[in-house]
C-alpha cells in the first residue's frame, strides 16, 4: 500500500508505485490505476456510444436509406420509360405494317387494273385484226376467183390466137374452153 500522506509519486512524470502484492511493477497490473482508467473509459465510451447511437448512426442509416429509395425510384422510372418506349415502338411497328399493307393493296389493285385494261385493249385489237384479216382474206379470195376466171379467158384467147396462126383459121370458142378445162381442172392454182 502507498503511504497515505506521501506526495503524489511522480518521478520523471511516471507513476511509479512501489511493488505491491497487486502489481509487482508491471503497469497493466498496477491496480492503483484501475479506478481512474475505468472512470475515463466510462466517460469516453459513454460519450462515444451516445454520439454513435443518437447522431452518427441514424445519420449514416438515413443516408443509406435515402440512396436506396432514390435508386429504386430511379429504377422504377427507368422501367416506366422503357415500357413507354416499348409501346411507342409497337405502335410505330403497327403503323408501319398497316402502311405497308395498304401500299401493297394499292399496288395490287393498280396492277390488276392495268392488266385488265391491257387485256381489253389487246382483245379489241385482236378482234380488229381478226376482222381485217377476214376482210383481206375475202378480198384475196374474190380477187383470186376473178384472176382465175381472167386466166381462163386469157388462156382461151391465147390458145385461139396460137391455133389461128398455126392453122390459119380460128377455132371454135367452146372447143378451146373445153380443152382448157380438161388441162387445168386437175390442178387448181394455189392462192396462198
Amino acid at each position: 500500500m502507498a503511504q497515505p500522506h506521501a506526495p503524489a509519486p511522480l518521478k520523471e512524470g511516471i507513476i511509479h508505485e512501489p511493488a505491491s502484492e497487486h502489481g509487482g511493477g508491471f503497469p497493466p497490473f498496477e491496480s492503483s490505476t484501475f479506478a481512474a482508467q475505468t472512470l475515463w473509459l466510462a466517460l469516453a465510451f459513454g460519450l462515444l456510444y451516445y454520439l454513435m447511437s443518437k447522431i452518427a448512426l441514424p445519420q449514416i442509416a438515413g443516408i443509406l436509406h435515402d440512396r436506396q429509395t432514390r435508386l429504386s425510384g430511379d429504377l422504377d422510372q427507368a422501367a416506366r420509360a422503357k415500357a413507354e418506349a416499348d409501346s411507342a415502338r409497337d405502335t410505330y411497328e403497327r403503323a408501319l405494317k398497316d402502311a405497308q399493307d395498304k401500299a401493297k393493296g394499292i399496288a395490287q389493285t393498280t396492277r390488276e387494273q392495268l392488266a385488265s385494261e391491257a387485256e381489253t385493249r389487246r382483245k379489241s385489237l385482236e378482234a380488229d385484226l381478226a376482222t381485217k384479216l377476214a376482210e383481206a382474206e375475202g378480198q384475196i379470195r374474190t380477187r383470186t376467183a376473178t384472176a382465175m376466171s381472167s386466166v381462163r379467158e386469157v388462156a382461151a384467147d391465147a390458145a385461139t390466137a396460137i391455133v389461128e396462126r398455126l392453122t390459119g383459121q380460128a377455132p371454135e370458142r367452146g372447143a378451146v374452153e373445153a380443152a382448157y378445162d380438161r388441162v387445168a381442172a386437175p390442178r387448181p392454182l394455189s392462192v396462198h
Binding site: 500500500m1 502507498a2 503524489a8 509519486p9 511522480l10 512524470g13 511516471i14 507513476i15 508505485e17 508491471f26 503497469p27 497493466p28 498496477e30 491496480s31 492503483s32 490505476t33 484501475f34 479506478a35 481512474a36 482508467q37 472512470l39 475515463w40 473509459l41 469516453a44 465510451f45 460519450l47 462515444l48 454520439l51
Partner: peptide, 30 residues
Amino acid sequence: FELKPLVSFGHIGHQNIAFTQSALYMFLAV
C-alpha cells in the same frame, strides 16, 4: 506500458486518480 499522468487529482484511498495519456488517447479516439 506505464501510465503518465498529465493532470493529477491526488489519491482516493489506494487509487491514484489522474488524467493520463491513456485517457487522452481514449478521448482522441472518440
